[in-house]
Nucleic acid binder design. Structure first.
Length: 314
RNA sequence: GGCGACAUAGCCAAGCGGUAAGGCACGAGUCUGCAAAACUCUGAUUCCCCGGUUCGAUUCCGGGUGUCGCCU
């Protein structure tokens, strides 16, 4: 049997992924699967730039707006749910369109990374975290070296505490080293025939201006109220990482002026966009469209033609 | 007009006679179960300009220019 066709629309925040994917969905009777680590959460609407019902234009959206902010989420969970959604969409004879800015999610799904083993155990993770904090990076690296020298070498470059913790966690919970596990998990290539459409701008300032404007718009649309509500609920670690609330918190607490908080929020968003671009840059299979050089209709036209050709649609 | 203070990287800023700390921003990058997260790397042949003292000046002296404050 042939591989499942999939379109992926990726790129930094505020590049217009939502609008493009909705139009493509209308054209190819597609359904959208959001690959966004924050739009999964209910009530986090304005901050995550979640599309409104109007903007969705009746196109089904999956993996969006379904989880309570107090619940944790992860790449593994995403892949599991996304694969199911793809199967369902294909059964309806519709085209799955994966849209989102969370690079790890997109790559894990399309690259078919396997996540069956090495479940996260919160208690174990907490214990290891405490230990790493106490021992410090160097001693932790020495410890890792005793069972997985290859990982110790790899991790000694970035010295990223989270990675060290995960490396120990994998070993303690599975008995396998992360090196062994990664070899095993590296997907068999891919189960999908995917075409990757990327949106970005040649001129970075162009994108940054869009981001600044969008943040202003979010403020006009009630982001402050949403932030206030967010902090009245209890939310999990995953949801708390969202850009949009934590930057406004100092104002809500009376510690900073609002305009300073808004400026910080814009900066945080611009940095996020930059990190996204860094992530996607290394993927040479992405077909890029520059939104500062093409109109929306031109992008849509080219993307449509590309999909027809690639998937041999009439 | 008088008096005083200050002039160091895009911004904040230390040094005050021995060959330019640090922070922020920007930029570059890493990424296999919190990824909108976490983490790594990177900048001054030169300290406002001109002259002087000195083996040696960002540091001391004189002059200029600019900014700020106070006074009239």
């Amino acid at each position: 049997m042939s591989m499942q066709n999939i379109v992926a629309v990726i790129g930094p925040t505020a590049s217009g992924k939502t609008a493009l994917s909705v139009e493509l969905a209308k054209h190819f009777s597609g359904e959208i699967i959001s690959a966004d680590s924050m739009q999964i959460y209910k009530t986090m609407d304005i901050a995550t730039a979640k599309p409104t019902e109007d903007e969705k234009q009746g196109v089904p959206h999956h993996l969006m707006d379904f989880l309570d902010p107090c619940e944790e989420f992860s790449v593994a969970r995403f892949c599991e749910l996304a694969k199911t959604a793809i199967t369902d969409i294909a059964a309806r004879d519709h085209l799955p369109i994966v849209t989102g800015g969370t690079g790890l999610y997109v790559d894990a799904l399309l690259g078919d990374m396997q996540f069956e083993e090495a479940q996260v155990d919160p208690v174990l993770r907490a214990t290891i975290t405490a230990e790493v904090e106490e021992r410090g990076i160097d001693k932790t690296l020495d410890y890792i070296r005793t069972f997985d020298p290859a990982s110790a070498d790899r991790l000694s470059i970035g010295r990223n505490p989270k990675r060290l913790i995960r490396c120990i966690e994998v070993y303690l919970s599975t008995g396998m080293t992360q090196t062994q596990l990664n070899e095993k998990q590296t997907g068999s290539g891919s189960a999908y025939h995917a075409i990757r459409l990327g949106l970005t701008a040649h001129d970075r300032e162009f994108l940054y201006e869009r981001i600044n404007r969008r943040v202003d718009l979010m403020m006009e649309n009630g982001l402050l109220e949403e932030a206030r509500r967010f902090y009245q609920l209890q939310s999990g670690d995953t949801a708390s990482a969202a850009i949009g609330y934590k930057e406004l918190l100092p104002y809500l607490g009376g510690e900073l002026d609002l305009d300073i908080c808004v400026a910080n929020l814009k900066r945080a968003t611009r940095r996020y966009a930059k990190r996204q671009m860094t992530w996607f840059k290394r993927d040479e299979s992405i077909h890029w469209f520059h939104i500062d050089e093409l109109s929306f209709d031109e992008v849509l036209g080219e993307a449509t033609a590309m999909i027809k050709k690639e998937f041999h649609y009439e």
